[in-house]
Amino acid sequence: MNIFRLAGDMTHLASVLVLLLKIHTIKSCAGISLKTQELFAIVFASRYLDIFTDFISLYNTLMKLIFLGSSFSIVWYIRRHKLVRRSYDKDQDTFRHYFLLLPCFILALLINEKFTFKEVMWTFSLYLEAVAILPQLVLLQRTKNIDNLTGQYVFLLGAYRGLYILNWIYRYFTEPHYVHWIPWISGLVQTLLYADFFYYYFESWKNNKKLQLPA
């Protein structure tokens, strides 16, 4: 494992911890899109189907369990927890996220590396992850006061995918035959979706002002 990959995983882990910290200790999910969280839960459930069939490493299995457990518990918190539920911006979080599922699934059926159940589901999870942040970005645009934890959460999520791109570039030059167009292109699309957010995030940081996205 190279340093970019490890840094990417750690940023991803940090993003989940920041979100859990906000939800668990402050008992608030204000500014967080349930739609995006539901899509992430579907992403991990369809990607990690191999968790009980293929053993890669203890690190790999543990991280998969963490991402599965955290994504489903976040959805549970926002939907079911008495206090957290109350802070959910339901009227603002209106993105029709179910409409993303079918196109991603059809694309995975059409464009994949191997037409097997596990491989199609894995490909589907990559396509879905690429666009899963959209409801969250729309919600951020509508939020007047984006709190620090929410801003950091989205920043860490974007950084995670950016670091994965560096990891792929590194692996391409250091490992023979390492060519995987599907994760690369969907990962690139996913990172590009954060470009606008990154710009305003750094602007607010530079000028020491509160983060706000133009509607």
């Binding site: 995983d9 191999d50 293929d54 790999n60 998969k64 990891n167």
Partner: peptide, 10 residues
């Protein structure tokens, strides 16, 4: 092999 190489990523 190739399958493992790809699936070792999260």
């Amino acid at each position: 092999d190739e399958a493992v190489e790809k699936h070792d990523e999260l």
